[in-house]
Design a protein around this nucleic acid. Sequence first.
DNA 1: TGTCTGATATATAATAAATATAACAGATAG
DNA 2: CTATCTGTTATATTTATTATATATCAGACA
Lengths: 131, 131
Amino acid sequence: MFISLDLQSDAPIYVQLRNKIIEGIASKELLPGDPLPSVRNLAKDLGVNMHTINKTYQLLKADGFIQIHRQKGVVINPDGFPEVTDVFLEKVKETFRPIIAEAICRGMSKEELLSHCEKIFQDILEGGNRK
Amino acid sequence: MFISLDLQSDAPIYVQLRNKIIEGIASKELLPGDPLPSVRNLAKDLGVNMHTINKTYQLLKADGFIQIHRQKGVVINPDGFPEVTDVFLEKVKETFRPIIAEAICRGMSKEELLSHCEKIFQDILEGGNRK
DNA sequence: TGTCTGATATATAATAAATATAACAGATAG
DNA sequence: CTATCTGTTATATTTATTATATATCAGACA
């Protein structure tokens, strides 16, 4: 995992980090059972505070993407990942809807939109286009 | 325009309102030249502060979706809307990427994803599924 | 016995979001 | 002319979020 944070971004660090790890899982760069750095080590590597990393891990744990063992450390969930729940679908809608609406205003066709989505999907699978 | 705000949402009020208006434009419920309520009236109607509305209008103006005339009021841009710029495409990517990555982790297929996007696109055009 | 885990507590600083008032300049209807 | 409506601007305050700085605790382990 090469993790780079964008300190200029309006997205909080702990969210950026969460997303990076999710992308790592999606691209199979991170496999079930793989270890993640300890809270303190990752904080040191990224030059941020321990609590910021802890917040990210707690989020990922709550969603079922990682397991946290008190003394062993943090691992990508070896028992598989959460499914597509109604809650998640709702999140998809709420996130996509405003952007798609703006795309329509700007004259983007449905085909064009789907093409962009497809490309992003592929890029993630191939682990590319990472910032 | 029936505008309802979700005070429970984590999205700021001024952003929610911006999105509602963008959706109104996308669904052609709001047409070029149509007037929008004055800052003070809308604030009163929604039960929020004047500055919150003003922030929304300034955002929409900066992006070219509305025009603001000092004494006449606010109208949906009669000269047409902004195009699909590189900046906007970048915003699409950055917004979609984390969600699509999570969708992949949860086992959603590409076809399933595109189907959801297509549905959202249609829903907006039809002015439905509004909250 | 150190040293590593995560977990937890407390305090502080910086920023963003929202509100509360107030005042200003220009247009316009009475 | 006056009152009222625009958007604009300024100032101050409150609240919540984000991030940091320290510190401590309990369990595991070499």
